[in-house]
């Protein structure tokens, strides 16, 4: 039961956090200058976008849930299970960020999910 709670937090808060961070970074704009001072400027601009703070809070929650479940289960099981967020991520990309997810990309996501299912079934 506690593992299930941790997994739900990792997938739910993690995916939500990534979507918020992605939305914030799109608002910041494409990064073209990779010098350290320019990157600090990008970070400062990103932290002025409220979506970034929501995203960081959600990702922090997911991080502590990940730590908790890693104390209970093997890494080679935990990390693939967290990939169940792929479907949620593609849906979020389409409906939250307005991205056009092509049929081919959906197929790729589906294949990845089938692989994840094999990983879970190969528990023993």
């Amino acid at each position: 039961m506690r593992e299930l709670i941790f997994y739900l937090l990792i997938i739910g808060a993690g995916t939500g956090g990534e979507l918020c961070v992605s939305r914030a970074m799109k608002a910041v704009g494409e990064v073209k200058d990779f010098r350290p001072t320019a990157l600090l400027g990008v970070a400062a601009r990103a932290l002025r976008v409220s979506w970034m703070w929501v995203g960081l809070a959600l990702m922090g929650t997911a991080f502590f849930a990940l730590l908790a479940v890693l104390s209970l289960e093997n890494v080679s099981l935990v990390v693939p299970v967290t990939a169940l967020s792929y479907a949620a991520g593609a849906l979020g990309g389409k409906f939250f960020l307005g991205e056009q997810v092509s049929r081919r990309r959906w197929m790729g996501v589906l294949i990845v999910c089938v692989g994840v299912a094999f990983v879970i079934m190969g528990r023993r």
Partner: peptide, 25 residues
């Protein structure tokens, strides 16, 4: 072995995804 197979399938999915354009918006 089943878990390794799952990993290979995941990589196959990655190849399919990698053939789509990185930006649509």
């Amino acid at each position: 072995p089943m878990r390794w197979m799952g990993v290979v399938i995941i990589c196959l999915g990655v190849v399919v995804v990698g053939q789509t354009p990185p930006r649509t918006t």
